[in-house]
Design a protein around this nucleic acid. Structure first.
Lengths: 417, 417
DNA sequence: GGGCGCTTTGTGAAATCGCACAAAGTCACC
DNA sequence: GGTGACTTTGTGCGATTTCACAAAGCGCCC
């Protein structure tokens, strides 16, 4: 079954698909392109300057342009390639800048892994050359299978590493560095954990799309990643190692804000990031920070609309601890209890008025506007609030106490309900 | 040695010193007073209306008036009583309203436990009656020793109970109720734990003085108590069982405030109280609350000057948790870091200006006055603070974040230093 | 010593606030 | 159905605050 080795220049182990492409180019004297099944560019021969605009666009865009694919599909070329084990001569399609090609599907066990294209620049290949071309396709299939398996292994290794980091299974920094080196992974000096919360479970395709989008940001590099149901967990670092932290932080925030709003070629999703970390032994803490951002944004969407990094949460990051302590205590804030009782008995809005007033920085004008009441109404209510609740609304300590109590109550009720 | 029973009407077990006093009165036909060694009234016969003003004052004040004691001491009466085993006839001292008395020291093993006084109204006792008087003194000594031992036992039982409560050694409410019943102690429905912090270690005498003062408040009843070095720990409840909680809380606060300022016949001391509790199984938590009040008052004396009950601490009670979480986090508040750096480099006061401004409820006028600067100076500094720190000083959330961060920093530095 | 940036203080106009007062609506209670 | 307490909205005015601008002081660097 196998061809004799002496006649087959492709019966060797190639470093990469690039090397194979160059070898095909040398053997057959024509520009060569290797694509995967999704028409993404995998490799191409660079030596030959003769090329058409379709190939140029493919190389620049790392993918066959949509209109070229559409034309080939319309003409039945893709179908014929899928059906045939032999090379097919594809005629030119001038509208899309596609000059004629010799093409063959790269196959492995009935599945099409990709396509091998050859631009017959000027000449026409004969029978022996066609056989060589077929052998080249077989070599490409071989290499692609190997690469895929290597990539899968490497991906699995990195994924396992990420989970071990997230679960804090290393204890100290040294074994983390060792493991990273073993995986051939350069650990950046500064990094942060980003969690992207999708609407539903994230599959491998969606994860890959997300990673591609992040990489395409040109500033954020996803160093490691993992998926936990609807959450993608990314360990991110500056794309450029020497970049200014502040500048990077701004860019990353801007990028993930666009991503969250669905402006990055995807659906809107909630996004939260940890603070920047140096020690990788603290990955679990950073992960919790990113989750805390998500949780806080869920509970206080308006207040934390612009928050992305954990430190941006400000005092909101203390709320869980505050709420927990409040829950453990036997008493409730007397002022709030009284105001709530008054609201209940008189069908009033003192509590929400107080909350709005405080949230608007004790500014009577804006608070009245937000409540859609006359500023005198607010003034009157505040006087009642001060009376009934025994509150001095010019005392920062009292106001902060009330403000935090209100926030903690909201956290408590929202978490229960 | 012992006198024959048939001749000794005091050779029986008396219910109390009061019964003994009444019996002496019946046997000898004169008003009787029994005092302890400190001239505090222990018992007196009530049947006979003939009495002098010194005795009257003693009964009303539960103690022999100072001037009477001074006179007796000056005249060597006390000394003679201490030296003699026999009754002594004390002449009248008209200046202090003291008519003549028959007196004898109540002794036990060389120690004087107290004094027995007899007002010979009109008549003069003879030899047999003097012997009876001596027997009465011996009966008083006997009763006092028994009482003292019973009291000591009961006191020790209560002290042990208090410590068991404070250490949470009961687990649930039922065994606490059982133990209290066994000790003959009625547990009030609502109570609070008060900790009084003295300058130095509290001995038994000081503890007793404190308890007397609290009892004398007429509103606060110390139900149980314990001493831990310089801290007296009191479990207090309303003196009147049915009293209004609010009213009691106010009175207790007022009383302990006076006590703290040293206005209650003692040295100034720090005082803190827990919230009100119902479940005695939560005594340790209430104790911690009272200690938290003391600790907070130590760290933030000005801000918590008027706080007494734990709930009065407001958000200050969250500060330890906030400071602990901040300490665990890798980042510091960026705004404060930048402001501190600016202050250091330019010898400025932006940080303290911000702190003062926030503490004065964002009131430019009062904050400027507190800082001793022109209000425009403050305004200028605030503009700089907003610029350098990237702060919006009209945003309640940002202000609260900064305020808490400043407080937590202060807590952290004060606890370290 | 002069320039420059930062800071403080002073001044005045504009905006805002606090508050008194009035009118009218709501609701519970007699 | 009237009464009175509570609430909302409106008007107006004096006090206060805010803000922009100017002047001057201070310290640093060339």
């Amino acid at each position: 079954m196998t061809e004799p080795t002496e006649n087959n220049p492709f019966a060797q182990s190639f470093d990469s698909l690039e090397t194979l492409a160059e070898t095909i180019n040398e053997v057959l004297g024509c520009p060569v392109t290797i694509e995967d099944a999704g028409h993404r560019l995998l490799a191409y021969s660079a030596h030959d300057p003769h090329t058409d605009s379709a190939r140029l666009a493919t190389i620049v865009g790392r993918r066959v342009p949509e209109n070229v694919i559409a034309s080939l599909r319309r003409d039945g070329v893709i179908q014929r390639l899928a059906d045939s084990l032999e090379p097919i001569r594809v005629p030119a399609i001038d509208e899309v800048g596609f000059s004629g090609r010799l093409a063959i599907a790269i196959r492995h066990k009935d599945a099409v892994l990709g396509y091998l294209w050859l631009l017959e620049s000027g000449k026409t290949l004969g029978g022996r050359e066609l056989a060589l071309f077929k052998q080249a396709a077989r070599a490409a299939a071989d290499k692609m299978v190997r690469l895929q398996s290597a990539r899968r292994k490497s991906r699995e290794g990195l994924r396992d590493f990420m989970w071990m980091l997230l679960h804090g299974q290393f204890g100290s920094e040294a074994p983390i560095r060792d493991k990273a080196e073993q995986l051939g992974l350069a650990l950046p000096a500064e990094w942060h954990v980003v969690v992207v919360q999708a609407a539903g479970a994230i599959d491998e395709r969606a994860e890959q799309r997300l990673l591609d989008r992040v990489s395409a940001s040109r500033s954020v590099r996803p160093v490691l990643h993992a998926v936990d149901r609807a959450q993608a967990i990314l360990l991110c670092a500056p794309q450029l190692a020497g970049a200014d932290r502040r500048a990077y932080a701004r860019e990353a925030q801007a990028f993930f804000a666009r991503l969250a709003r669905g402006e990055e070629d995807g659906v809107p999703a909630a996004v939260g990031s940890s603070a920047f970390g140096q020690s990788y032994a603290e990955t679990p803490a950073r992960h919790r920070e990113a989750l805390a951002v998500l949780q806080t944004k869920r509970l206080f969407p308006r207040e934390t609309e612009r928050a992305f990094y954990y430190p941006d949460l400000g005092y909101y990051r203390f709320l869980p601890a505050i709420a927990a302590q409040s829950r453990a205590e036997v008493f409730r804030n007397e002022s709030l209890v009284r105001l709530r009782a008054y609201d209940r008995e008189h069908d009033a809005n003192l509590l929400s008025t107080l909350a709005t007033f405080l949230a608007h920085d004790s500014n009577a004008k804006t608070a009245a506007e937000a409540l859609h009441v006359h500023s005198n109404t607010l003034s009157y209510r505040l006087k009642r609030i001060a009376e009934i609740g025994g509150i001095d609304l010019t005392d920062m300590d009292q106001k902060v106490s009330l403000y935090l109590a209100l926030k903690a109550e909201r956290l408590a009720t929202d978490q229960k309900g």
